[in-house]
């Protein structure tokens, strides 16, 4: 199992080099990729997903435990160490949820019983991230946006069991982010979030800063930021609380601003 990936510097759109020569990400790291729209965040995680070896437009190279990926890892998705979830990734299957998950789990699991256990764990994981629990009998295509995102993350984490999970701006999709980060940290992986969300950025161990297609900085979350994080979380929870009340057809009052 891969326990480290390394990004070897490439170039931005202006031809200037990434500011870091080499960046190592280790098992258990939670990393955010931040930057304005068009700054190259998605390109960076595409490089990772494509096992770039100097053959993408940026010229970056990605190493797994210090070496380029083996061709078999690219060819066989069940050996691919990376799961990528983007805003566009979706389920196309109209199978009922349980049947779909069992179909997937059977490829990975050794026995029918092991597959069933994986499916149960995946559903439990997903249901902790979404507002409305997933009905295992519903068709995949009937799930809401939030439920779909939650199930994609749960499936990638529990059934695929890949050491590296890339999440491209999934925070907008109605999932419980605090819960997600807690659960994800418990499953030791390398998580890379492309995010505009201050909460996710500050709860990460470090953040890769992008501009004009290149990596301009890598910031460790420092002590002051760690101290600020709970306050940001409270603000965010307050907004979530307001959102939930408004969604539920309720009125809001000054008292709702005190709720954390």
């Amino acid at each position: 199992m891969v326990s480290q990936i390394s990004i070897i510097a490439g170039r931005g759109r202006d031809g200037r080099c990434d500011r870091i020569e080499r960046l190592d990400l280790n098992m258990g790291d939670v990393v955010s990729v931040v930057g304005r729209t068009g700054s190259g965040k998605t390109t960076l995680i595409n490089d990772i997903e494509l096992f770039a070896d100097g053959d993408t437009p940026t010229g970056r190279r990605i190493l797994f435990d210090g070496v380029p990926a083996a061709p078999e890892d690219r060819d066989d998705p069940s050996r691919n160490p990376i799961a990528l979830i983007t805003q566009h990734t979706t389920f196309l299957s109209d199978l009922p949820v349980t049947e779909f998950l069992v179909t997937h789990a059977r490829i990975r699991a050794r026995s029918q019983a092991a597959a069933q256990a994986l499916v149960a764990e995946t559903l439990m994981f997903a249901n902790q991230l979404t507002g409305e629990p997933i009905n295992p009998g519903s068709r995949m295509t009937e799930l809401s946006g939030g439920q779909t995102r939650a199930l994609l993350i749960a499936d990638a984490t529990v059934i695929c069991d890949t050491p590296i999970v890339l999440l491209d701006e999934v925070e907008n999709a109605g999932i419980n982010r605090t819960r997600a980060l807690e659960l994800l940290r418990r499953h030791k992986r390398i998580f890379i979030f492309v995010t505009h969300d201050p909460r996710i950025a500050l709860l990460s161990d470090r953040r890769i800063v992008m501009s004009e297609g290149r990596i301009t900085d890598v910031l460790e979350t420092d002590e002051e930021e760690q101290a600020v994080a709970p306050a940001v979380t409270r603000l965010d929870d307050m907004l979530s609380h307001l959102r939930e009340r408004l969604r539920g057809g309720l009125r809001v009052s000054r008292a709702d601003l005190e709720v954390a």
Binding site: A83, H104, I107
Partner: peptide, 15 residues
């Protein structure tokens, strides 16, 4: 078009 579908469906498709 592998980027358009879930990891799960990629794996099932290949299998």
């Amino acid at each position: 078009k592998i980027d358009r579908v879930s990891q799960a469906e990629r794996e099932v498709f290949r299998a």
